[in-house]
């Protein structure tokens, strides 16, 4: 009886000491949260039709960290994804859907951004499709190039036929 009481007393003392010395450890890892001092980079991914790339697989690659994703997840309902960069340099964010579409964002993170002194303009705007006059000019350029290529092929064919005809005439002359 006395022996059992002594063992219980020793066990209680050990537990008491542990709790006093390491209050967090006594109940497993404690956890908490605070606002990040570094701004998050929030991106919005969309198709050329204007539709959001919603719920699509997203991978973030740190500068020089190609091959292994620094972070991965999915875009939200509105095609948005955000991450907090750990170092300065060029970060790459890749979004892929299941139908063979892929969007890639290259984000240059500066020292000012990491120090929180940036005005939040780290993300360069890149439209999935040129807009307005730029779109019109590119469309016109494309059509023009197609007809120029066709004219080139036609001239080449006509030239080849002309040479063939000239060859036949000179052969007949001999």
């Amino acid at each position: 009886m006395i022996r059992r009481s002594v063992i219980s007393l020793i066990a209680a003392l050990i537990l008491g000491y542990s709790a006093a010395a390491h209050p967090g450890a006594a109940f497993g890892h404690g956890s908490g949260y605070r606002q990040s001092k570094i701004d998050a980079v929030a991106l919005e991914f969309y198709y050329s039709t204007g539709e959001a790339m919603a719920y699509q697989e997203t991978k973030v690659y740190s500068p020089g960290g190609e091959g292994i994703a620094y972070q991965s997840g999915r875009t939200d309902e509105f095609g948005r994804y955000s991450f907090v960069p750990a170092t300065e340099g060029e970060w790459r964010v890749e979004v892929k859907d299941d139908e063979g579409h892929r969007a890639e964002a290259l984000i240059p993170i500066t020292a000012e951004f990491m120090e929180g002194a940036s005005d939040g303009t780290a993300v360069p705007v890149q439209s999935s499709l040129p807009q307005g006059a730029d779109l019109f000019v590119r469309a016109l350029l494309g059509v023009s190039l197609i007809f120029n290529a066709a004219a080139f092929v036609r001239l080449k064919r006509s030239g080849a036929k002309g040479e063939e005809a000239a060859g036949c005439t000179s052969a007949k002359g001999f």
Binding site: G50, E51, A139, G142, V143, I146, A150, R157, S158, K161
Partner: peptide, 29 residues
């Protein structure tokens, strides 16, 4: 043939431009 090249260029242009025309088929486009 040289005579058919314009037709090919025209069809190629139509295909090139058609991709700029969005079609809304809910919920996607």
């Amino acid at each position: 043939d040289p005579d058919g090249i314009v037709k090919v260029a025209m069809a190629s242009s139509v295909f090139f431009l058609a991709s700029l025309i969005n079609v809304r088929i809910p919920p996607a486009s």
